[in-house]
Computed example of a mutant assay.
Amino acid sequence: MDWDKLRIFHAVAEAGSFTHAGEVLNLSQSAVSRQISALEESLKVSLFHRHARGLILTEQGELLFRTAHDVFAKLAMAEAMLADTKDKPRGELRVTTTVSFGMLWLTPRIKEFSDLYPDIRVHLILDDDELDLGMREADIAIRFRAPVQADLVQRRLVQVTNHLYAAPTYLKRFGAPKNIDDLDNHAILAYGAAVPQPLADVNWLLAKATDPQRPRKPVFTVNNIYALMLAVESGLGIAALPDYVARGNTKLTQVLPDSAGPTFDTYFVYPEELRDTKRIAVFRDFMLRKVAEWGF
């Protein structure tokens, strides 16, 4: 099987079209199409169903794609491990975490890491859905729950706490709540999506109503913590926010500081086969140092 054709097939399967794959590979659409046709002819099977809106893998194509994806992932890992044999940590480092944590806490600290390790190129992938580390969609994940896969190394990173926050403009207009029951008389903002454990209590504020049988109804919901913070900043209402989102934000004021929400642990996670790579080790140590300095 021709490696060049297999590489092009893998890119086409991921992109879903000859045109997009060509842009990734710096080849023309016609050149990509010819290579795929030649691969299909040599294998004597059809790898794609061709439609006006794109390409769909056939059953045989799915089989080849899974195998090719595994091969290229192992090659990428071998390349990374070879790079780690040099004296200084170097190479690509793909880190994934949630949108809010990545935007508000992690990104502002990447420059310091890059200054310390200029030969490591960090690619930060922000996604509230968990990427598959086993399939090498990322090298490191900072997750808000313990991983369940047995082949992942995990290190407890920090415990996150939630408190109530409002904008000074809201408090000036409506006053500050005097106790948790007084929140029945205020506009409550909430996270508006189904979330997995242990984040399922993210809307604990709604359940803490005077009458437990009649939970509070939010005036606004949004399925992103960063957007929820912006809504609070605008003066729309009061919301429970993780402290890493709100601490140091002069546009927010903590209310009812004795009323903290549930706490949950975050984890630094990476595949077992990357355990001894220098890039992983220096980034892990950097993160542990930064969370200790910040004082979660």
Rank of each mutant, 00 (worst) to 15 (best):
M1F: 13
W3H: 14
L6H: 05
R7W: 10
I8R: 02
F9T: 02
H10L: 12
V12N: 05
A15F: 09
S17N: 11
L27F: 11
A31C: 00
S33E: 14
A38M: 11
L39V: 03
A52N: 09
G54V: 10
I56M: 14
E59V: 04
E59Q: 14
L64Y: 12
T67D: 08
V71G: 01
F72C: 11
A76H: 13
A78K: 08
A83G: 14
E92F: 08
R94V: 15
T96H: 05
G102T: 11
L104I: 14
R109Y: 05
F113P: 07
R121P: 00
L126G: 03
D127Q: 12
G134K: 04
M135R: 15
M135W: 12
E137N: 06
A138V: 10
F144W: 07
Q149K: 15
V158E: 08
T161I: 06
Y170D: 04
F174I: 00
A176D: 09
L183P: 03
I188A: 04
G192I: 03
L199G: 01
A200H: 15
N203Q: 07
N203G: 00
L206D: 03
A207P: 02
T221Y: 02
I225H: 00
L228E: 02
L228S: 09
V232F: 05
V232Y: 06
G235A: 10
G235Y: 09
A240Q: 03
A240P: 01
Q254D: 08
S259M: 13
T263G: 14
T263I: 10
T266A: 10
F268Q: 00
F268A: 06
E272L: 14
E273G: 00
K278D: 06
I280E: 05
I280F: 10
R284I: 05
D285C: 04
D285S: 09
F286S: 07
V291I: 15
V291D: 07
W294R: 13
